[in-house]
Nucleic acid binder design. Structure first.
Lengths: 257, 257
DNA sequence: CGGGCTGTTGAATACATTCAAGCCCCGTGG
DNA sequence: CCACGGGGCTTGAATGTATTCAACAGCCCG
């Protein structure tokens, strides 16, 4: 059963390691509405540069936000991916969520004035940064900006509703299936490939997030593969029978997002 | 081990069923900031009545929001409690969250224009209703209102971060312990009794939410009781050793909210 | 007073974890 | 360029834990 193939399912293996990560265009970025308000489409297109740092690179393993740091900005993932976690008494980390291109990071820091968790890049990534201390440059456009922000926050609240579905599942099979579907739905939301994609996180991270042992996650992937529901090669996944996966997850007729 | 006592740990059993539920004062309600903007403390105190319906009663089992309904308002729990759920393909319901006095319901419906899940009262409750279609009466106060709303949304995003801690836990003991702590923290947040309280939801609901069997939840409660960590009599709970419960949950030094 | 619902308890089964080993990929250094 | 070694991932067998099935107790309601 060990794959003889490389850790990529692309036709040109070597090239794939050089290939750029998925990048969201501004139009499908969660920050877009706010960027637009800030001048992207306005007569003063430079205004945006005062509050939005664009496409800042982040190296793998680097922290964009440290738990407990003072709130000052929110980030949009432009390319790559991130995990957020808290550190437990034991020193172990508990993964809270993953973030993918187009999604916003740091919103939960706004109300309390500090970020509740650490945000770490899972791969070479890039982010746009929106500086909250400079919002005054928006002047009377602030109201429109706020509306966009409210929308982004509400959207996020809605997405968070996936979590109980993920975790509330009784068994490992359901949880793993739902996890894959939630990833796929999140990718689709921002017009990224949602059937055949790369898992940016390790099995260890997935297990941590799902509350399972690493070995169990591995076994579930193999089980799904043997059922022809998907194909796994290392971190590359192709969903072959999404409907069947939805049945296993028990979600069948619940719409994502 | 069966309790000989009634389903209440209060000195005057009969009276307790007549006793009013916990009620939050406006000052510790999640809607407060918005109410204030809307005129609660302003020269025109009646303005608020145009957009906020106050203390509307809700009977046990009654739905405040039906899944899929068009978004139009948000609710603040004034007294009582609610559960939200989605209905799965099988017809089973998956509980998404519980809501307690002072907390806001319906925020996730804002971005998409419809509510993603059903909201049902677990007991006789009351809510304040904020009508979004009438926000124009706020005039130039809208900006301030939006700021309050943003704050509420961010707070909610932060609270949602509890969920992976709840569910990401490997075993039933940790999950149950974390569940109790999260309830306690949510009560404390709105200045309600957080050490000795009544679980408004059934064991079945708890099990559904935590992804455990009902029997397991029951056994965990008994186990904690035998360890002198808490006292349970039916739905009444008193946390006797919160620190020890935190240790079991593995949260020890993570701060709530 | 009886029936149904909620919650508890016990025993057998099924499931996930743990422990242990090995493979593959990839980067490092010879 | 190849050998070595480490980390990530998979696989197998034994243990432990949660679920399932079954039964019963207490409470609420009619």
């Amino acid at each position: 059963m060990h794959t003889k193939e490389r850790d990529t399912c692309c036709p040109t293996p070597r090239a794939s390691s050089r290939r750029k990560n998925n990048v969201v265009e501004c139009e499908s970025c969660g920050l877009y509405g706010m960027c637009k308000v800030a001048g992207l489409d306005a007569p003063v297109p430079d205004l945006i540069d005062e509050i939005v740092g664009r496409r800042e690179p982040v190296a793998v393993g680097q922290n964009v936000i440290a738990a407990g740091a003072t709130f000052g900005e929110i980030y949009a993932v432009k390319s790559g991916s991130f995990k957020t976690y808290v550190t437990m008494a034991s020193g172990e980390q508990q993964i809270i969520d993953f973030y993918f291109p187009g999604e916003l990071i740091g919103l939960e820091g706004l109300s309390e004035g500090s970020y509740p968790h650490t945000v770490e890049a899972l791969e070479a990534s890039s982010v746009c940064r929106l500086d909250f201390s400079k919002l005054n440059v928006l002047g009377e456009r602030l109201g429109e900006f706020q509306k966009q922000l409210i929308n982004a926050l509400s959207k996020r609240a809605r997405q968070d509703q996936w979590v109980p579905l993920l975790m509330g599942a009784q068994n490992a099979e359901q949880r793993t299936a739902t996890f894959l579907l939630s990833l796929s739905a999140r990718f689709a939301e921002h017009e990224l490939p949602s059937v055949r994609f790369k898992l940016p996180m390790s099995r260890h991270d997935i297990a941590n997030y799902l509350g399972l042992a690493v070995e169990t996650v591995s076994r579930m992937f193999q089980r799904f593969q043997s059922m022809d529901l998907l194909e796994v090669h290392g971190r590359h996944v192709e969903l072959r029978d999404i409907d069947a996966i939805r049945v296993i997850a028990g979600l069948n007729n619940i719409n994502a997002t």
